[in-house]
Design a protein around this nucleic acid. Structure first.
Lengths: 172, 172
DNA sequence: CGATAAATGAAATAGTATAACATGACAAGC
DNA sequence: GCTTGTCATGTTATACTATTTCATTTATCG
């Protein structure tokens, strides 16, 4: 799959999660939260970082690093891979963006400002990604980990399957 | 990280999971199980597929596709990437091997023959991988998924952290 | 201001994975 | 026996993902 050929059907309804919502609100809230967080923690919310977060919030679906890089390039914000990866590293480290390991792609966090362990539902048909919480998961996992003496620092929980829309289309 | 430079410290104790066990038994049991399963399901357990599974069982830690390919090449079993990826696809599809998304690496299943949803603990220091079950996880996740109308087909659960051995070394 | 740390620019390269097409092996059915 | 279909393999090329490295600039703070 080329970066530019990444499935585009994760759009419209699907791209906004399973349920509709006010996209502008959701986006400006996330940007504000990021700004506040950076100010409070003396982090530099630089133009590239800001723009990458905006792009991911706007898209509201998972994008590959090179998809993002292409947009940055068009806007004159950078042209080499490290530009995108650095910004993504920063955003991921600070919890504004999550990496979907299953897809080698990135998605804006849907719960800005909260300290959380995210879980994702990934549609194998349209590539849509929805974020949810994983609190119960983590606890039950912790039991097994503690039994083994393993210290959990971070968890990746991703479910692959079919979103409501694509289930209907399969049936149709 | 080059394929050949993949951290090697996942050896000895660590490579055998957190607890020691009879490696030969564990390996021959897994091979037998695979053989039986393939016979029962009319699947071809070809030399390359067999050898890749053996390699992963022997290593007992996660290997990249190119690490495996290199071994196959040395043995004259294949030299091009698709050789390794095809065998791995087969083994993963049939549950003999799991892919660690976090590492882009593959590990032999530690619970041969069982229909299961695996979860992994990955040591960020020595790259050791331990497999455990994720039954509770799946159920709690299912609740959120059903609420969203999402149909889960497969789950990836991976915890990153420190294994007992590396925790001690950190302290030391 | 000057020192230090953080961020960016730029080039090269490493690492992971698949597409596409040809060939071979083998079993089912005529 | 021959054809046909299916599954597996061989081979080439290419696509996609990510990091290393070093030079340079910009921010931050004493």
């Amino acid at each position: 799959m080329t970066s530019t050929n990444r499935k585009k059907s994760a759009n419209a309804d699907a791209a906004k999660g399973f349920a509709r919502h006010d996209h502008d609100d959701c986006m400006s809230a996330a940007m504000s939260a990021a700004e506040v967080y950076c100010a409070e923690h003396s982090l530099q919310f630089t133009p590239v970082r800001r723009r990458v977060l905006e792009i991911l919030l706007q898209e509201h679906s998972a994008l590959g690093a090179y998809d993002i890089l292409e947009k940055l390039r068009e806007e004159g914000l950078g042209s080499q891979p490290p530009v995108a990866y650095r910004a993504l590293d920063f955003l991921v480290s600070n919890g504004f963006v999550h990496k979907i390991e299953r897809m080698n792609a990135f998605v804006a966090c849907a719960h800005p400002g909260r300290d959380h362990a995210p879980a994702f539902m990934i549609c194998r048909s349209c590539d849509m990604v929805a974020e949810t919480q994983t609190a119960p998961t983590k606890e039950s996992f912790n039991a097994a980990a503690q039994a083994a003496g393993f210290l959990i620092e971070r968890t990746v929980v991703e479910a692959e399957g079919l979103c409501p829309k694509c289930q209907k289309e399969d049936t149709a």
